[in-house]
Design a protein around this nucleic acid. Sequence first.
DNA 1: TAGATTGTTAATCGATTAACAATC
DNA 2: TAGATTGTTAATCGATTAACAATC
Lengths: 214, 214
Amino acid sequence: MNHRPRLKASLISRLVEYCSFLEARRSCTGISPISSGEIAKSLDIDESQIRKDLAAVGVRGTPRVGYRCQEVVRNIRQKLGLDRENLAVIVGAGRLGGALACYGGFENYGLRVIGVFDSDPRKAGTSLAGFVVEPMERLESVVRRAKVSTAVLAVPSGAAAEVAQRLVLVGVRAIWCFAPIRFSAPDDVVVRHQHLSAGLAELAYHLRRKPQSG
Amino acid sequence: MNHRPRLKASLISRLVEYCSFLEARRSCTGISPISSGEIAKSLDIDESQIRKDLAAVGVRGTPRVGYRCQEVVRNIRQKLGLDRENLAVIVGAGRLGGALACYGGFENYGLRVIGVFDSDPRKAGTSLAGFVVEPMERLESVVRRAKVSTAVLAVPSGAAAEVAQRLVLVGVRAIWCFAPIRFSAPDDVVVRHQHLSAGLAELAYHLRRKPQSG
DNA sequence: TAGATTGTTAATCGATTAACAATC
DNA sequence: TAGATTGTTAATCGATTAACAATC
């Protein structure tokens, strides 16, 4: 308990599922308690798994009643640190960068985007999703001054490694990378790759046979 | 062997990694053979795992020499069905839809995007990443006529379930969904969710403690 | 109380890693 | 040949599922 038992990625993603399920449910069904069985059925996850996961974030249920939704959501958010505010920048003001700048999901995870950068001098100064695009030369000073902890990498593959290094050097602690490129980073910097290609490959694999043969 | 042993998602994603690693390597190092140890070191995957995976796609290596890169890539692509061409449509011509329409990765997986749709009548007829955006009313006829097998769902969460149902009804067999919404689909339709939120949660979790305390 | 549901331990399952004979 | 590397089986590890006493 004392030695920070790192949560596994799989557990984190289940916790996120519980959270968004319960938040959506609350707006329909209100705040009545929910049983592990009901969550299990809705999310197609094993019942015991859910009880274990909830125990892991310190939620206690009541036999014959279930769990209090609000408590579950609160504990998960706290355990995952979704309540702490962190600042983020988006590097790359192309279409993907623009899509991400508009993406409403950041706040849900305590991330506040404060700037968008692009290496194309023609883009600097233009407006994107409410942000004024800044030139790459300003990256370091902005990150340092505002103590930005998180960077979203929406640059071409060729540029990703170099940008990542610059970000690490200037103190960024988390990188969300959309380029399909590996690069090294110190152990205390999380790099999370958003592999679009694995998703595509799975689709293609399923499609490899003609319809009727499954 | 005969009863189509479905490849697990985890295996598929490793295979994709091998493939892109070897393709990138070829442009530097040429076509000299590669050992499982070398791949293992580069990708930080266990050596035996790699040998097993390659055996699973029917590649045979040579003791003391290694594997022929070209053969590995060819077999993986064939096993995953990346060579077959499939047609796709993108539904939702917002920023995300636009980013995906530009995304060059589709061809690599045998997918050819042939149309982009949007429910906003003001968008119909406008041009997006080389496509003329079509109104949603045309969705069924285009999908049916061109035998489109794949759909990319880049619509708001509220619309996703309904659009998915329309797509399924008209014969789409694979859905790549970017909205964080669950919906039901027949067993023979693959639905692959691209969970952006799980990635964000992992970053937030890592950031929950102040720098020095790790 | 009776009985549904939790919390948690035990059993199962599958995935990962280790080992090593076969082989080029 | 000698020795590095494969192919594959066995051992380990962890994650998932089942079971059931505790409990409200």
